[in-house]
Computed example of a mutant assay.
Amino acid sequence: MGTVSLVRPARAAAGGWLCAPVPLGRIAVFRTLVYLFVVADLVYFTPWVRAHATVPAELYRPLLVARVLHLPAPTPALVHAVFWALLGAALVAATGRWPRALGWTVFVLYAEWMLVAMSYGKVDHDRLGLLVALAALPTVGRARFGSAEPSAAGGWALRVTQLAVVATYFLAAWAKLRFGGIGWLTGATMTRAVLRRGTWLGGLLAGVPGLLTVSQFGIVAFELASPAVFLVRERVRYLVVAGFYLFHALVFATVTIAFAPHLVAMASFLPVERAVSRLLGCHTDSSR
């Protein structure tokens, strides 16, 4: 009995952290942000995926998920059907209508869109958080803008998205050390990036002896330390997340890599409903 009494509180505490309630208004804003990004991704960030409709079949190398599910190779009919269906579903889902049905539809279609995109030799690791958000949001159900009603389901959806965001950093560092070893830290990785796609700022930094090599140590240290964001108080956590955004701003300013879907998923850490309320001059609706 003593063992049971110790285990149950531990499980409750873990469940409480994983499902810590958040206002449904936060879910409504985050959900709209995510679905509008899907639209922007289709027409602005990854329009090149549509070109895979006409890529020779022998270049297709399906990812593990596609192989396990026995998904068909991309064809013009499949790619264009997914594009238009996803575009329409995401636009409607952004309004909050039919959150479960449209939410699952957007997740399935976007996952297929990503499989089409990444099955030709290049896999972007900045999509993990967004894909987890798309999978988790339909489980919440209805959420109205301005609602202060606490939701454990909403807390879970945001928490698993946060975990995916942090996993993106931590696993990126693990991959660097696993495949690149110490050579990734001491080599010319950042120098090559600056030479290939750098900006004037990147060129300026490259002119300082040893600075880019030091930055490589800093990047890996930052990625390995990223789980610490869960160990600090809420106000400090907002500052840490602001530091994450600043890191990506510097990356874009030097080598023009944006990590846009990751930045959207990272908003799961923030009280986005407060920003929208202040922007619109609205008050939180505590009656819902």
Rank of each mutant, 00 (worst) to 15 (best):
W174A: 15
L130E: 03
V106E: 01
L130I: 01
G96K: 06
W113L: 01
L109E: 00
I182Q: 14
T168M: 10
A117C: 03
P99N: 10
G121I: 05
W174Y: 15
A93S: 10
R97M: 13
Y120N: 11
W156P: 02
A111M: 13
V92I: 14
G141A: 12
K122C: 03
L134R: 09
V106I: 06
G181P: 12
R97Q: 13
L163G: 14
A90N: 00
A136I: 07
V108L: 02
A89T: 02
V140A: 08
G155Q: 05
V123Y: 11
F170V: 15
L128V: 15
A175K: 12
G103D: 04
I182P: 04
L134P: 12
L131F: 08
P150T: 08
F107L: 04
H125P: 11
S119K: 07
G88F: 04
L109F: 01
A167K: 06
G121M: 09
T105F: 12
L109H: 01
E112Q: 13
L109W: 01
L91P: 00
G103K: 05
A133L: 09
Q162F: 10
A89R: 00
F170R: 07
V106D: 00
R100G: 03
A90K: 00
A143D: 01
V92Y: 08
L128T: 15
R97P: 10
L87T: 00
A93M: 08
P99K: 12
A143G: 10
A164K: 05
Y120F: 14
L163Y: 12
A164C: 07
V92H: 08
R127Y: 07
P138V: 03
T168S: 15
R142T: 15
A101Q: 10
L137T: 05
M114A: 13
A167Y: 13
G121H: 05
G96L: 02
A175M: 14
R144Y: 10
R100F: 12
F107N: 01
L128D: 12
R127C: 04
A93E: 03
L131D: 07
G180H: 11
W156Q: 01
K122W: 11
T161M: 03
G88A: 10
S147F: 09
L87Y: 05
G183Q: 07
A111V: 13
W174T: 14
G154I: 09
L131V: 12
G146I: 04
G181T: 11
S147V: 04
A93G: 05
Y110H: 10
